[in-house]
Design a protein around this nucleic acid. Structure first.
Ligand SMILES: [Zn+2]
Length: 278
DNA sequence: CACAAGACCTGTCAGC
DNA sequence: TGCTGACAGGTCTTGT
């Protein structure tokens, strides 16, 4: 489900609510999702000051002032729901696996039907040296601008298709199936091109278009296809700006005469215009 | 090591 | 109305 723009949207929603607050209660409605929930999560985290909410790749990071970081991944179908705490809101739906009650009276629900999401608890100062953070590629919208030469060098080493390369979180962090296809359309590059065949000039355009599409998607609150919604319950709006994703057989918005093609690469759908994208 | 395919899990939708 | 198969915003594991 959530790629960088959706996780960033959730991060921005949680940040003002949670920083400086704490969890009064953490209710786990099952012992695990993709992985077992952190042991004694409620004991270890409740009443501890939340010092920083941030995002790395598709991970939400909740830093606590006593030196632990809660790592929160939403998998394919994960949602974060923020509600005002009231008497009626204590019941949970069938896929509401973890419920956090905050010191400023919010109920934050982790809903995830497919349970590919997970929570992990690591010491903050060890995060960077632990999997998967150890091998995670650069942030496309990071404070330190991702240089074209870095991306180009990483692509040069790989024989996989450029589409698959964009999904590899070790090369660039945060892109998923939607935004990989959309960025390649914007850059007018075929998803079937070998990653190592891009010219520096093409990589340069691709990086700019990756950044543009991610920024526009964040501004739109992400893309809603099925499960995803912003934490306040609104849908995202970027699905209305898709040029290729889920648009098989519809005409390309650039050339206006070629139907969008759907292919499968490494088991995942890719959409593109066979004429515009070379 | 690099890569493709399989696995994880549940819900939805098209087609019969 | 069922049933069946395909498919879904991700990533870890397995096999070649
Ligand atoms: Zn076109």
């Amino acid at each position: 489900m959530p790629e960088l723009p959706e996780v960033e949207t959730i991060c921005q929603a949680l940040k003002p609510l949670l920083e400086g607050q704490s969890f009064l209660k953490i209710q786990a409605n099952r012992p695990d999702l993709r992985y077992p929930l952190p042991v004694n999560m409620e004991t270890v985290l409740s009443h501890k000051l939340i010092s920083l909410i941030s995002r790395r790749a598709k991970y939400l990071l909740l830093d606590f002032s006593h030196g632990l970081t809660l790592i929160w991944h939403l998998g394919m179908s994960g949602r974060v729901i923020i509600e005002n705490l009231n008497a009626l809101s204590l019941n949970s739906g069938p896929h509401d696996h973890v419920v956090f009650i905050t010191s400023n009276n919010y109920k934050i629900t982790f809903r995830d039907p497919r349970r590919f999401g997970f929570l992990l608890l690591y010491p903050t100062n060890q995060l960077k040296s632990l999997h998967p953070f150890k091998t995670l590629g650069p942030e496309p919208l990071g404070d330190i601008p991702l240089g074209v030469s870095v991306l180009h060098a990483a692509l040069k080493r790989r024989t996989i298709s450029i589409k698959n390369a964009l999904l590899d979180q070790r090369i660039i962090a945060g892109l998923g199936n939607i935004y990989a296809s959309e960025a390649l359309w914007q850059a007018r590059l075929s998803p079937r091109r070998g990653a190592n065949t891009l010219r520096l000039k093409e990589t340069k355009i691709l990086l700019i278009e990756i950044q543009n599409v991610l920024r526009r998607a964040i501004s739109a609150g992400g893309s809603t296809l099925r499960d995803y919604a912003q934490p306040n319950g609104d849908t995202g709006y970027f699905q209305y700006s898709f040029n290729v994703y889920k648009r098989e057989h519809l005409l390309c918005n650039h050339c206006h005469f070629t139907p969008i093609t759907r292919i499968v690469q490494s088991g995942r759908a890719t959409y593109y215009c066979d004429k515009c994208q070379q």
